[in-house]
Amino acid sequence: MAQQAWRKIRMLVSGIIVGVSVLTTAIDRLASVTLVTGRSMQPSLNPEGGSNCDVVLLNKWSVRNYEVQRGDVVTVMSPKNPQDEIIKRVIGLEGDLIRTLGYKNRLVRVPDGHFWLEGDHHGSSMDSNSYGPVSVGLLQSRASHIIWPPNRLQRIAASLPPNRGPLDDEEEEG
């Protein structure tokens, strides 16, 4: 009798250990969900502001080799605070020439291994315009879908805001 109870406890514990490790790995490697707070990505995310926060699905598998496109919405660890994760749109990749909005230089060439991130709401976003190009190593995931509230269920498309994005090299000379 005691032996049987002991066996059950052992099975339960090993099941919990396996479950936790499989779940942790899936969250770290495949996908997770998160609540978006703040106004920096309006109007794409949190369009109403206030307490109506969007929940987004973060695809981690697609950024395992640090491959992103211009226009993708990504999450990175904040360069200002290692505990914070921030969600922004990729405006420029390495080598691009960016016309900045209020950064110390008017034009910036994005260095190797970095990208240029901006929130969609230029007025109230802490982004590359305040701390410069961000190292790609801080990349955590790509936000692929809005999953809550249900009436806003949709894919997040890669799209650059009008008049943003890398400049052509001819423009630089002109």
Partner: peptide, 19 residues
């Protein structure tokens, strides 16, 4: 846990190449 102190030897991702 943010327990890195001055003098520690660390492994970090290179800022110019995440691989």
């Amino acid at each position: 846990l943010c327990k890195i102190q001055k003098g520690d030897i660390i492994i970090a991702k290179s800022p110019s190449n995440p691989n």
